[in-house]
Every structure is written in C-alpha cells, then in structure tokens.
Design a protein around this nucleic acid. Structure first.
Lengths: 290, 290
DNA sequence: TCGGCCATGAAACATTTGTTGCATGAATTG
DNA sequence: CAATTCATGCAACAAATGTTTCATGGCCGA
C-alpha cells in the first residue's frame, strides 16, 4: 500500500521501531540518537556504550531490511555526507518544475526568511522590552494568523510574569478588555497587511487609555502603528509563497521576551524556576532520560 | 620554532604538508580534500581510491605526530563531530554590560536564528507536504509554547482546506480526538525538549490508528518522532536566551503549508479565494487604501 | 503441562583492518 | 664512483571487526 517515504535510513529505522523487540528498540533508539557515532565508531564500541550485545546491531540492521550492520552503516554514512547539504543543493534553482520543484520552493523560502531576520532593527526591540519591564500589566492582541505570535508572546511572558500578562479577548469579548486598559500598562498589537479591524480597535483603545502601545507589524504606516510608542518592524512579504511570512514576527516576539526576562533580573529568574518546578511536579513533561 | 596553531588535525596536516615526501603529500592532500571519507571509510578503501599504498596513510599519520592512522582518524572524527549545543553557544556569552547590552542580545539572537534556518532539511518538508496533500483529514497537535506553531499551521491550512483540518483538542478533551484518527488521515505533532506527555500520547495514538504521522521537533530521537513517517527537524537551542527558539518551527510550518497549497493546484487556489472573499465581505479587514 | 517459538547473550568464526618488516630503486653525499 | 640515506611498494602479521551459530530462558498456544 502506501509506502511511507523512506528517504533516509534513519526514517526507515524510526518507522520500524515500534514494532521491534524490546532490545532492538533500545539499540535502535541509541543509533537514532547517536547517528554520528554510528557512522564513525565500531559496532562493538557502540555496543559497549549502549550496554547491549554487539549482535543486536546486526539483528537491528537486518530487521529493517539491510543485509547487515555494514550496509546500514554505509547508508547512514551516505545520508550524512556533507557535500550534499541537501541532496539537491546544487541550487537546483533552475528547475522550477519536475519532482524537485517543491524542494526548491522550500529552500527558497527558508533562505529568504533567513535573509530577512538580520534586517530587523534591534534597537526598538530593546526599547520596547524596557517599556514592558516598566509596565504594571501587559496586554497582547493578534488576530488571524497573527494570533499564533500573540499566543507565543503571552506564553513566554507568563512564564515569569504570570499575573501581569493577558491576551486580549482571552476571557470574554474583546470589548470588555478594551475598557480595562490603564495608563501604566502596555499593550502589544501584532498585525500586518491585510489589517484586521479588531487589531486596529485594540490599538486605538490603548492609545485612548494612555497605555504604552507596542506594534509589531510590517509597515510604519500600518493603521495600528499610528500613535504607537514602539513599532517593531519585520518583513512579512520577504518570502515566496502564498502567504506572508511570520518568521520575523516570531523572532521579534522571542527577542522581546528574552530581553524583558533579562531586565527582570533575579526576580524573573526565580519566578521562571517556580513555574518550571510546578510543571515538572505535575509531570507535564516526559522525563529526560529513559 | 614557533609551534603554529594546531587547532585542528587538518590544519596540522596542511602545515606539515610542504615538508613531506612527494607520495605523502599526495596522500595528505587527498585526506584534506576528502576528510569526510577519511573518517568513515577504511584506510585500504581510501588507498584504492587515491591510487596509493595503504602504508602511506600510516606513514602520513606518523609524519605529523600521531601514533598511527587510527589516532589521526579519531582526531578528524572528533573535529567533525556536530556540536551538541550550537556553534554560537560559547560566543558573546561574556555578559556584555553597558547600555547596549540588550541590543547586543537581540542582534545575537536574530543572527543565530537566521543561521539556523538554512540548515533545515528541505526534502523531508516536501515529502511531508505530499503526505498532507493525500490525507483525507489533517490533525494538528502542539502544547505549551508549541501551541502557537500548531495554531498557525491550523490557520493557514484551513484557508484552503477548511473542512479537513482540525486542531487536536480544539473542541473538547484531547482523548476524544485521539480515538478519531483514521488510517487515511495525517497527524502533525509539534514539540521539542522538554517533551510533553500530551504530545507523545497524540503521536502514539496516530501510530496505532495507522495514520500518517508527521513530527516537527528538535531531535530525531524525540519520543513523538518514534514511528513517525516524516520528521521535520529544526534547531530549538540555536539561539541565546532563556527559551528555546521557535523560529525554525514556524518556518517549517509555513513552508509545509506553502508546498501543500501549491500541490493543491487550482482547487486550493479557488478555495483560498473563496475564503478571502468571505472575510472581505464580513469586512474583517481594513480596506487597503484610506 | 507440554511443545514450539522467539528473543537474547556468549562464544567461535572468517574476514577485514591497521601495522610493520623487508626489498628495491632513486637521490644524495663524500 | 661508491656509500649511504631515504622514499616507496609489497607482503606477512596480529588485532579488531562484523557475522553466525548455539545454548538458554521466557512466552504463548495447544
């Protein structure tokens, strides 16, 4: 039936893993986690480090369709070969069609977005972070695709300022929150073309209340950037594809959170540790080592 | 007799090269030019390909101060080992002070993240997009900070496949959705260290149901990558700061959506236009020109 | 409970590995 | 020109590698 794409030996391994005997699973996980050593060191070495029988490696290789460990290792080695940064790295850019057109699209996109990031002005971010640091409370608003940026910012800031950060509209209609803005609070609005009415309303309300308004957008002339105390610009259209890029906005959000955190000093650090301890106690996370 | 900086075995080799016998020079150049093969293939293999005597490799190693080829190879292997953290981890960490410390932090972060993007493997994204294209329905899961990535993906995919894309847990407890996975559907799980139990459960449920599992994570050995048909890797730790970076995950999500859209052809385009028309009619957006 | 199956570890196996001794021939020196 | 040094290829060596076989013990179905 639907042959799963077995582009790399590692993915073959991963796919077969769950249906393997216990010992082979252990060994398989070890290989997946240490694929560099798998290609460079000897089978017996790996066995010793993994605390397993050397034979298990041979059996693992055979279990996923290779003639033996040597062949598996050869496949891994080829997959890791650097000259083929991506198998089509030759920039295959000329070939807009054919089977590799998709890969070329992805590469284009990633490169374009990578190029856009260093062009983001850093100074305004640092200044905005200071404003956040001074704010009694922080409101965050973003709609449609920008919602994800708003939520990330909300999540990260709440890690060390849980009681003072809030998403606009998180607990009821936006309109209720709009009336709650105070002059000593900060409001962050994320948005780019086409701009939603909702985000513009939030910005206007913030301005009216005398709150510090921080706009994360793609243009200085964006409607919600009007009257903003800080405007953090990114290039939404910098990458090919059917939809504007949010990579820059995410990078800004994370930098903003990082600087705000560092401004928070030991107090922020302490609260972050508390939050982490609580999450660990609730066993939200999988324990690090199996 | 100023010992030249012998940071890497390769530089030692290059430095000693000119004073070596002719044959050893040839072999040395071959090693320098093919250092990847030097670490992975056998001495005799290399000798055959270089058209030289196997003994020459042993002699070369001894000539530049190693006890033998094995030791040289070990040094090369260690030099090539991909750093567990990141090339930037040691950098700029020296607590810059002064008024511009924050700005420097932002710049570091942006640069590091920009450097990480082109390292994202493109091929798996294209393959995963094809799987999405073929899926009858698409489920998306992500928790904590990864929720924002999941929601962005959900939003963009729903623009042109509104009825077939759904967030896990969007309309009730996760558990209800977990039982709804079908073999002809695709499940996307976003997560990185520390991994949440919830995301692992989703991945396991997807695997059990025979659905196509796509994992967006920071490691091939992530628990929810086990049994995954496609694993899309990004570097969560590639940037300084208190929190892992989501920029790579966002870039992957957007590329995935873009390729899936392009695979959808005119049908997808048509549906996107419909969606846009509806949003405009509801006057969600501010009209372009004032 | 018995019988077969499979997973697993230990040991024996043939092969391949890196190394070294030796013979040859060219280059260097007195 | 003779004596010496040195670079080089070949072949034999011991060590290490990956593989296979076999004995053991647990598990499931009859």
């Amino acid at each position: 039936m639907a042959e799963p794409a077995k582009s790399s030996p590692l993915s073959e391994l991963r796919i077969a893993l769950p249906s393997l005997p216990m010992r082979l699973q252990e060994v398989g996980r070890f290989v997946a986690a240490n694929d560099y050593d798998a290609t460079t060191r000897s089978m017996r070495d790996l066995a010793a480090e993994a605390g397993a029988d050397p034979a298990a490696f041979t059996r693992l290789a055979k279990a996923i369709g290779y003639s033996g460990w040597d062949e598996l290792r050869a496949a891994l080695t080829e997959a890791r070969r650097p000259s083929q940064t991506s198998p089509f790295s030759g920039r295959a850019r000329s070939r807009r069609h054919g089977p590799n057109a998709d890969v070329a699209l992805v590469i284009d996109k990633l490169e374009a977005e990578a190029a856009g990031l260093p062009r983001i002005p850093a100074q305004p971010i640092a200044e905005a972070a200071r404003a956040l640091h001074d704010a009694k409370r922080i409101w965050i608003a973003g709609y449609r695709s920008c919602r994800s940026v708003a939520e990330l910012l909300n999540y990260e800031l709440r890690l060390f300022r849980p009681e003072q950060v809030q998403l606009v509209g998180a607990s009821g209609p936006d309109d209720l929150d709009l009336g709650a803005f105070r002059h000593d609070e900060a409001v962050i609005v994320v948005g780019f073309l086409p701009y939603t009415h909702a985000s513009v309303r939030v910005a206007q309300a913030a301005h009216r209340a005398g709150a510090t308004l921080i706009a994360i957008s793609d243009s200085l002339s964006a409607p919600m950037a009007e009257g903003a105390d800080h405007v953090l610009l990114f290039e939404a259209a910098s990458s090919p594809g059917f939809f504007p890029s949010l990579t820059g906005a995410i990078a800004i959000a994370q930098s903003l959170a990082a600087v705000t955190f560092s401004l928070g000093g030991v107090a922020a650090k302490k609260r972050l540790e508390n939050t982490e301890a609580r999450l660990t106690a609730a066993s939200t996370y999988v324990s690090e080592k199996g």
